[in-house]
Amino acid sequence: MAAKPLTMSRREDRDGRLLVAPTMAVVLAFAVLPFLAVVLFAFLDVRLVDIPRLYLDELVFTTDNLATVWGSPRFWSAATTTVTYAAASSAGAILVGLAVALALRHPFPGRGLIRALVLVPYILPVVAATTIWKTLLNPGYGLVNAVGTEWLGWAEPIAFLTTTSRDVGPFEIPVALTTVIAFEVWKTFPLAFLFITARLQVVPGDIEEAAQIDGAGKTRVFWHLLLPQLAGVMALLAVLRFLWSFQNFNDIYLLTGGAGGTEVLAVRVYSELVVRANIGTASATGLIMTGMLLVVVAVYAWMIKREKA
């Protein structure tokens, strides 16, 4: 018996699923399945050495990993560091991006080239960026310390990447943490710059002109006309940058290895996995970390919804 010819919409349905299937397969196998495995591992007592002898029917479940991680002061200190790092670096990146976008808003000869140059930190391979900055900040032969001791009158070179804290006048500055935050601002402000520039280009010019004719200075125009229009894109950027900085591993691991008070959650997951070879606690740490990210996403989604309602 010959198969009935498919209707147009049935064929569309079949084609659509077939076309998405290969992508779905890779994503399921290398992202969704691993995430389910994290949830599983977080409730198992497993170490790396156990892996060759790990069989599904012999699993013993436990909440010890989560309890260990939850009760560990080191975890909470890493969580605090992570939140500080993510909040400060996303706020910094957005403010710097805003300043540069405003400065480059009106055309002048050479603006195209400067716009391209400003994007350099964002496209630079992270390993190249950290290697160059480690050299710049080197206490022995780095440019920053050479300038500081020769010209700025520093008593001694500063080990930017290993010093936990340092008294500057009445303040205690967390040197290494500030340095990795500054690096993150440097590396990610170009993205904020691009987003804000794109938004500035569609700001209608006539209201601004009218305000200026009425005698409003540029500062007032910025606070009352531009900023309200940029608020949406800046809020979106704040959330995205926070989510990305919160999970950042590369930059901090490559710059400090987590030393000098810069141990963030991502570095903790790595050291539980590789140094302590404890899959259970590494997964538990990762799971709690993901939970914290979900809270941020949920709060943002709720705010968007409330605004629309």
């Binding site: 691993p34 995430f35 495995a37 994290v38 997951v269 790595y270």
Partner: peptide
């Protein structure tokens, strides 16, 4: 998948 932290996926991928 886009929002999941790479370091979290790294644990099971390493094991697998």
């Amino acid at each position: 998948v886009y929002l999941l932290p790479g370091i979290v996926l790294a644990v099971p991928l390493f094991v697998l």
